[in-house]
Lab assay of single mutants.
Amino acid sequence: QYKLILNGKTLKGETTTEAVDAATAEKVFKQYANDNGVDGEWTYDDATKTFTVTEKPEVIDASELTPAVTTYKLVINGKTLKGETTTKAVDAETAEKAFKQYANDNGVDGVWTYDDATKTFTVTEMVTEVPGDAPTEPEKPEASIPLVPLTPATPIAKDDAKKDDTKKEDAKKPEAKKDDAKKAETLPTTGEGSNPFFTAAALAVMAGAGALAVASKRKED
């Protein structure tokens, strides 16, 4: 009698068979294992007439167990938060979910874009303008004329002030004479000065007065 010990991944146990020799028993056991989907390494112990079949655990490639991950970057252009961060993800969709959660946790809500070549996400917050509040242009400074500094008044001594007054009066006198001369030139000519009769009478009076003066002097002599 021969014995078979099964150490399979899905089947474990023992069974026996009657055979004329070990070779015949081995054929029977291998057919049995094959029928039950057991495929492994076989050993035989002649002392105990025991066969053992052991399935090795399937070696799984690490790449099959853990999907390949890629590093993705997020650029934040927020109104109050600006910067960059990264995450590792199996695909862009997974990275996007992580980045949007990160942005939401930090109060950033804007327009999202993605560049597959650089594996970069960008979120930009738009500045909202309040309706009716149009931007006002800064007032242009008016052209200013530079002020001319005033010349301080120079105090005048009393004596100098009197001299100035005297000079002013002396300066006025010639001007007054000139005014009188002008008035004389502009006076109208009277009839006496221009009538020949009056001129002859005046000469006769003057001659008579002269003769009287000569006669009076002779009497005195």
Rank of each mutant, 00 (worst) to 15 (best):
T17Q: 08
E14I: 13
T24E: 06
K3G: 07
K27L: 04
A25H: 01
Q31C: 08
Q31Y: 04
E18V: 14
V28C: 12
E55L: 03
V20D: 08
G37N: 07
F29D: 00
Y44D: 01
Y32W: 08
L6C: 10
D45N: 13
F29G: 02
D46R: 15
G8C: 07
A19K: 14
T17N: 08
A47Y: 12
G8A: 08
A25F: 01
D46L: 14
K30E: 00
G8L: 04
A22F: 01
T15I: 09
A22W: 01
Q1L: 13
G40T: 00
K27Y: 02
D45L: 12
T50W: 15
T43P: 01
K27D: 01
Y2A: 07
T52Q: 10
T16W: 13
T15P: 06
W42R: 01
V38A: 03
T16Q: 11
D21C: 13
Y32G: 05
G13A: 05
L4I: 04
K3Y: 08
T43H: 11
V28K: 15
Y32A: 04
Y2V: 05
Y32M: 07
N7H: 12
T16P: 06
Y2M: 07
K27P: 03
N36V: 05
K12R: 13
L11G: 04
E55S: 06
E18W: 14
V20E: 08
G40V: 02
L11V: 06
V38F: 05
D45Y: 10
N36G: 06
E14Q: 13
Q1F: 14
T10E: 05
F51L: 04
E14R: 13
Y32P: 01
N34M: 02
T52R: 09
T15S: 07
Y44S: 02
V38Q: 03
K30V: 00
W42Q: 00
W42T: 00
T10C: 06
N7K: 12
Q1D: 09
N36S: 07
G13K: 03
F29R: 01
K49R: 13
A47R: 13
K3T: 09
K3C: 08
K9M: 08
N34T: 03
T43E: 10
T48S: 12
K9C: 10
N36M: 04
V20S: 10
T16L: 09
W42F: 02
Y2Q: 04
K9H: 11
L4S: 06
L11M: 05
A25N: 02
G40K: 00
Q31F: 05
E18N: 14
T43W: 12
A25S: 10
D35W: 09
G37P: 01
N34C: 02
A22D: 06
A22L: 03
K12D: 07
L6H: 03
L4N: 06
V53M: 07
T24R: 15
I5F: 12
K12W: 15
Q1C: 10
T10P: 04
K9P: 06
T48M: 12
E55H: 05
N7T: 08
F51A: 02
D39H: 15
F29W: 06
F29I: 04
T52W: 10
D39E: 08
D46T: 14
A25Q: 03
G13F: 03
V38M: 10
V20M: 08
D46F: 15
A33I: 03
Q31K: 12
A25R: 01
G37R: 06
W42Y: 01
K49C: 10
L6M: 06
A25I: 04
T52V: 10
L4A: 07
G8Q: 03
Y44A: 03
T54D: 07
G37S: 07
G40N: 01
V53L: 06
T10H: 06
E55R: 05
K30M: 02
V53Q: 03
L6V: 12
I5A: 08
T50I: 15
D45C: 12
T43G: 13
A19T: 11
A23Q: 15
F51W: 01
Y32R: 05
Q1E: 09
W42D: 00
G40I: 00
T48Y: 12
W42K: 00
N7F: 14
L6K: 05
F51Q: 01
Y2T: 04
E26Y: 00
T17G: 07
D39I: 14
D21A: 14
F29L: 08
Q1R: 14
D46S: 15
T48I: 13
V20C: 11
A22G: 07
T15K: 08
A33W: 01
I5Y: 13
D35N: 15
K27T: 03
T17Y: 10
K3S: 08
E26G: 00
F29N: 04
F29H: 09
T10M: 05
A19R: 15
D21I: 13
F51N: 00
T43A: 14
Q1I: 12
Y2E: 01
N36A: 05
Q1V: 11
A25E: 01
K27F: 03
V28T: 12
G8D: 03
Q31H: 11
A23G: 15
K9T: 11
D21Q: 14
A23N: 15
A23D: 10
T10R: 06
A33T: 04
D21K: 10
Y44E: 02
A19L: 06
T50Q: 15
D35L: 13
T24D: 06
K9I: 10
D39F: 15
T16V: 08
T54Q: 08
A22N: 07
T10I: 06
V53Y: 02
E18F: 14
D35P: 02
E55W: 05
K30N: 00
A47C: 12
N34Q: 01
E26S: 00
T10G: 05
D45K: 13
D45M: 12
N7R: 13
A19C: 09
D39M: 09
A19S: 11
Y44F: 09
A19V: 10
T16S: 11
E41C: 14
A25T: 06
T10Q: 06
T17M: 06
F29C: 07
L4P: 01
D21E: 14
A47P: 12
T17E: 05
T17P: 02
Y44C: 04
F51S: 01
K49F: 08
I5M: 09
A33E: 00
L11Y: 03
N36T: 07
T52L: 07
V38C: 04
E14P: 04
W42G: 01
T17I: 09
G8Y: 05
K49A: 11
I5S: 08
N34Y: 02
T52E: 10
F29K: 03
N36F: 03
N7W: 12
K3H: 08
Q31M: 08
N7I: 09
T52A: 10
D21Y: 13
Q1S: 12
D39K: 10
D35I: 13
K9F: 10
V38G: 01
V28L: 12
T17V: 11
A19M: 07
L11C: 05
T54P: 02
N7E: 09
K9N: 11
W42P: 00
D39P: 06
V53W: 07
E41K: 14
E41L: 15
E41V: 15
A23K: 04
T43Y: 09
A19E: 06
K49I: 09
T52K: 09
N7M: 08
K12P: 04
T16N: 08
E14Y: 14
K12N: 11
Y32I: 05
L11A: 04
E18Q: 14
A33F: 02
N7L: 10
N36L: 05
T16H: 13
E41T: 15
V38D: 01
A22M: 02
V20K: 10
E55D: 04
V53E: 02
T48K: 13
E41F: 14
F51G: 01
W42L: 00
L11D: 03
N34G: 02
K3A: 08
V38Y: 03
D39L: 08
V53D: 02
I5N: 09
K9V: 11
T24Q: 14
Q31R: 13
F51R: 00
T17F: 09
D39C: 14
Q31W: 05
E41H: 12
